[in-house]
Design a protein around this nucleic acid. Structure first.
Length: 441
RNA sequence: GCCGCUAUCGUCUAGGGGACUAGGACGCCGCCCUCUCACGGCGGAAACCGGGGUUCGAAUCCCCGUAGCGGUACCA
């Protein structure tokens, strides 16, 4: 199998494109095949080096690698010109100066169901000659056969008047030259496929096998865009998602394993993935489910590994102890600092929490807590726990009445990692200092 | 407008003629666990787009309708 991922560098890589890349990668790795990366940069207006770099960066982060490329499509313009000449010589294509208005006029005259047919002219853009009769059938691994009657097709422009080639032509030639056996791409290309097939047929070439993936939609059922929150791979990375979790989630968007499992490692995906099981209907991208799935992956990570990732994510060091006590409460890497940042930056400022838990009764309790903690020989989690449970028993109050004031004194908020763990991580001096500060304020 | 694709809980899906009183997961609701928040456990509400066929029998096959989406560029 020779597959390809062929993004157009007109913006950041979005999850839709990332999923297409993933599916191609999964198929290539499953089969021991080859994945070719091609950059479809024939739109010179919108294609930029920055966008190319963004795509490469996104693929690197996702750990989706490729075996050949990246190949720039414009770099192949000599070959494209050569094939263009071949089609012109063979009478399969012709120059035409017909404008959009003229095409519309043609249809008005011949009926809206009649595709445009032009006359050969000495100059102008180049159109592919579509046969008047007959049909082109797209054989699709996911959708079965789709028939396109030639009479409905316009003679497509395959090269601009300046000689530069257009997508439907370049794709067909490049896939052919790269020896691509399977074209796996979004369903938005299904209607383009007969044009590409016609180019290949004019060249007398054998077409690849096609598989058109269902499109990805946002939460409102419409095309995924900025409106739906993070839509690019970079944004997802910045929101603290793990690449392995994102791969798992994207795989599930349009595909289900036989036993309908939800958590599937990348290795298992490589083993199980098959194009035949890809569904035909569009899927909506659901941040909620991704968050949940990411939480599962976060919790499955060894503490050292998670610490390393969080240190890279936050740009801070010495996080291990804080990570250990807060990992159960995180769903994304971005959740860490709001939850545990107080350990390093000092207590947060939450007036509502102070008012509720550091009232007169809270302060009385906090003093008792201080007296119980100060003389501890070992300031370990278990020693702290024993001491505090002693305070609870001695005061005869609910545990919460003792723990919440401590929590607010240490963290400045009513939410934090477990209180025994937090005290142990902060250590005696810092803990007592924070308690004293709370009592003074 | 024309061409085409699609149609199972709110969402992602399992299902490929009888095993379906339609299963799982996210989310939601309730209970349990509990020092907060989470995690975890248990339970619950929630779907076969509509209409015709085919068949002894249809979520599954066919047709029509409807809806959504895609294409219809000298964009990709």
């Amino acid at each position: 199998m020779r597959l390809r991922f062929a993004p157009s560098p007109t913006g950041a890589l979005h999850v839709g494109g990332a999923r297409t890349a993933l599916y191609n990668w999964l198929l290539a790795r499953h089969d021991g095949g080859t994945l070719v990366l091609r950059i479809e940069d024939t739109d010179r207006e919108r294609s930029t080096p920055e966008n190319v770099e963004q795509i490469l960066d996104a693929l690197r982060w996702l750990q989706i690698d490729y075996d050949e490329g990246p190949i720039s499509q414009v770099a192949r313009s000599e070959r494209h010109k050569q094939v263009l000449a071949q089609l012109l010589d063979g009478g399969h294509a012709y120059h035409s100066t017909a404008t959009k208005a003229e095409v519309d006029a043609f249809k008005a005259e011949h009926g809206s169901k009649q595709g445009f047919r032009g006359e050969a002219e000495p100059s102008g853009a180049i159109r592919l000659r579509v046969p008047d009769d007959g049909e082109t059938v797209v054989h699709d691994l996911i959708r079965g056969d789709t028939t396109f009657a030639h009479v409905h097709l316009d003679d497509p422009v395959i090269a601009r008047a300046d000689g530069s080639v257009l997508y439907n032509f370049a794709v067909a030639v490049d896939d052919l030259d790269a020896g691509i056996t399977h074209v796996v791409r979004g369903e938005d290309h299904l209607s383009n496929t007969p044009k590409q097939l016609l180019v290949l047929e004019a060249l007398g070439a054998q077409p690849p096998v096609y598989a058109h993936l269902p499109l990805l939609h946002g939460s409102d059922g419409r095309k995924l865009s900025k409106r739906h929150g993070a839509a690019s791979v970079q944004e997802l990375r910045d929101e603290g998602y793990l690449p392995e979790a994102l791969r798992n989630y994207m795989a599930l968007l349009g595909w289900g394993s036989q036993d309908d499992e939800t958590i599937i490692s990348t290795d298992e995906l490589v083993q199980q993935f098959s194009i035949e099981r890809v569904s035909k209907n569009p899927a909506q991208f659901d941040h909620q489910k991704l968050r949940w799935l990411n939480g599962r992956y976060v919790r499955a990570l060894p503490v050292d590994e998670l610490t390393q990732r969080l240190e890279a994510f936050t740009g801070r060091g010495g996080l291990r102890a804080a990570v250990e006590i807060s990992r159960e409460k995180m769903q994304t890497l971005a959740d860490f600092w709001p939850l545990a940042g107080f350990i390093f930056d000092g207590p947060a400022d939450d007036p509502a929490a102070r008012e509720k838990w550091l009232d007169e009764a809270g302060r009385v309790t906090l003093r008792a807590v201080r007296d119980a903690l100060a003389p501890l020989a070992q300031f370990t989690q278990s020693a702290v726990q024993a001491a505090l449970e002693g305070v609870v028993a001695a005061l005869g109050v609910k545990p919460k009445q003792v723990f919440q004031p401590i929590r607010v004194a240490l963290a400045g908020r009513a939410v934090s990692p477990g209180i025994f763990e937090t005290l142990a991580v902060l250590g005696r001096d810092e803990s007592l200092a924070r308690i004293d500060r709370a009592l003074r304020s």
